[in-house]
Design a protein around this nucleic acid. Structure first.
Lengths: 153, 153
DNA sequence: TTCTAAATTTAGAACTATTCTATATATGAT
DNA sequence: ATCATATATAGAATAGTTCTAAATTTAGAA
């Protein structure tokens, strides 16, 4: 793990480079969002803040999330399985995979899914969003067999 | 256009076949949803009801939408450009196209978009959702030229 | 028909996630 | 240190949906 102070300095640099004034609250949140959080919701971010920063308000969490999105340091992701917005530190275009067992979201590189629209209609496609659903960790044979077996009393 | 009474009878039949008791409210809403509405939101449906059915409550609109979804007569669609749920009378698997100019949603048959996941990770994909964004009606050359031209005083 | 039990509809309260508002606090430039 | 501006704060407001409890309607029995 990176030393906390060095990490803070690096984050501060990234904020400045993106035109965001590095206040204490912003550095703390950016550190969480850019080095550690895994597709958190605003609620997840607030929870982290409550445990790691004194008296940060929910408004600051939302303000900062919006600011970091505008600065292109994080991306807003809206997926159909929840009404909560998810924040993603991967800012380049990519797709998502929803593990239906755990509810976890995984990023998928566009190169890993071939998408070729061949619309009958003469429309111009300017963007593509893809959500894959399934099991991210495929079950081992042993686990599958155990699950399949009826419990014997 | 189909004669209203015949249409009602047909709708009533479909509701019964799907195991839904055909009350007056349900017949009216199903008629709108299955023959005429184009990806309406709950608000659109309520608005139609206010203009075409006496005193229907918002709760009935939501109850009936949920009921028709459970009965697989319509499908719930959640898209990232709005926080409102959209209802679709096409119930088989398909993709969507968002016209970014009009905000309108169009259904796209899965045969019209080739999607081939080739994940590095050994995951099992059980479903794919695709949203295309762009212009559904591609502009004619004339319109494009007119739009491009600076207005001369 | 009338009665009755269950299903449905209703109005409005409650809820969730987010945005807004007004005030207080902190910051950087002078 | 002062001042103007930016930021942070608590809480109110909002949007969309779901819940609750009471009233109404329905289908079937008597």
């Amino acid at each position: 793990m990176m030393k906390s102070s060095a990490e803070q300095a690096a984050i501060e640099k990234r904020l400045k480079a993106a035109g965001v004034r590095p206040t204490a609250q912003r550095i703390a949140l950016a550190r969480f969002l850019l080095n550690g959080a895994d597709h958190p919701t605003a609620e997840d971010v607030k929870k982290w803040a409550d445990e790691n920063f004194p008296k940060m308000s929910l408004a600051t969490v939302y303000n900062t999330l919006a600011l970091l999105v505008r600065a292109k340091l994080i991306k807003e992701v809206k997926l159909p399985h929840t009404s909560r917005v998810i924040y993603d530190d991967r800012v380049s275009a990519h797709y998502h995979f929803l593990d239906e067992k755990s509810g976890k979201i995984y990023d998928v590189d566009p190169s890993e899914v071939e998408v070729k629209p061949r619309l009958k209609k003469n429309a111009s496609v300017r963007g593509v969003e893809v959500l894959l659903r399934g099991r991210w960790e495929s079950e081992s044979r042993q686990i599958r067999e155990r699950r399949g077996k009826t419990h014997v009393q």
